[in-house]
Design a protein around this nucleic acid. Structure first.
Lengths: 194, 194
DNA sequence: GTCTATACCTCGATAGAC
DNA sequence: GTCTATCGAGGTATAGAC
């Protein structure tokens, strides 16, 4: 892991982000030092500042990148089909997307309070966009009579909380395959809104 | 807020815990310094060490106290009635108990990673006790035919995640009363398992 | 682009006066 | 029981050599 002088910007940049992602997720933003990140990458602390203006920007960039990916992937699901079909797609998508990047998910939920106010507002707004996508499905289903939901706003938050909870226990080497987990949760979500 | 020399142990002790609870919840354990806590209480940093051997013990004591309260209150719900009745009691209890102490709940979920290993094991074990109480209700309901649940372990985690999510948005001055929130969630939980 | 060195600050925790 | 003062460690970020 010892490093000598040289240029490695194309390699080191991503490695800084990966190390920060892993360490922030494991120990928390405030508990991780720039020196630790540098050690993980194999450079000295000063070298990190070639890739980020400061520690806060590094956190924000990770969270922003995650939310942008999430929203783009959600959009790619499309709007075709019945509300029930769309809700099933959303449910399965949420579980599989989140299970593939547990560290980014964890940071994006846990480190909101570590963001400076302007950065917080931006991430919060992106998250609301995501919630609104689900709420739209639920409202369409209420209008068409497919769903019975007392309060679509609350049902949205309840479903997302339930689905995101998968990340606290799911391991790909565990008792259930991801497909089985998706099926179990889809059964519960479907019954929740019918 | 300026303080003079004197003895105030009966007052200061609880005040230290309250200040730590509030600050840990707002900014995170790692981001809060003993000096900040002392300032909030109105003493100097050194004086805190009359009430806790160190910062870690303060965190653990807060989390331990919360879990003990939670388990005692859950036990007081009793085991009488049908599985459906018990599930309704559990659901309403979880929501109201958690909504009354959002800071302790927040810390107990978010700061698990800030605990030293031995302390972590203790809190995790208490949390499993709580989950097992709900799982027992679900299993009894499956046995009696009242519930249809594909996987009681997963349903337990799903229901708890859904219910705990209330704390992320519920405010007592908001659009809905706590009773209304409880009713909405009970409807969703009931349908989830039927 | 990375290094070494360092400025400057804040941390947790302790010692000893009152 | 609280104060002031302080220790030693470690924090972010920058400067300048290579």
């Amino acid at each position: 892991m010892a490093r000598t002088t040289g240029s490695h910007s194309e390699i080191t940049g991503p490695r800084v982000r990966e190390a920060a992602l892993r360490l922030f997720a494991r120990h928390g933003y405030a508990a991780v030092s720039m020196r630790q990140i540098a050690t993980e990458v194999g450079v000295q602390a000063g070298a990190l500042y070639n890739y980020t203006p400061d520690k806060q920007s590094l956190l924000f960039s990770l969270m922003r990148g995650h939310m942008d990916e999430l929203l783009a992937a959600r959009k790619a699901l499309g709007e075709e089909g019945s509300p029930t079909d769309r809700l099933e797609r959303f449910t399965r998508f949420h579980i599989s997307f989140h299970s593939e990047r547990p560290e980014a998910v964890f940071i994006s939920y846990m480190e909101l309070r570590s963001l400076e106010p302007e950065n917080f507002q931006i991430i919060e707004s992106l998250r609301r966009d995501y919630e609104n996508a689900l709420e739209g499905i639920l409202r369409d289903g209420m209008d068409s009579g497919a769903f019975t939901v007392a309060d679509p706003k609350i049902a949205t938050l309840a479903v997302i909380a339930m689905l995101t909870g998968v990340n606290t226990w799911y391991r790909s080497a565990g008792r259930l395959t991801l497909e089985e987990v998706e099926q179990i949760y889809w059964d519960m979500v479907r019954r929740c809104v019918s």
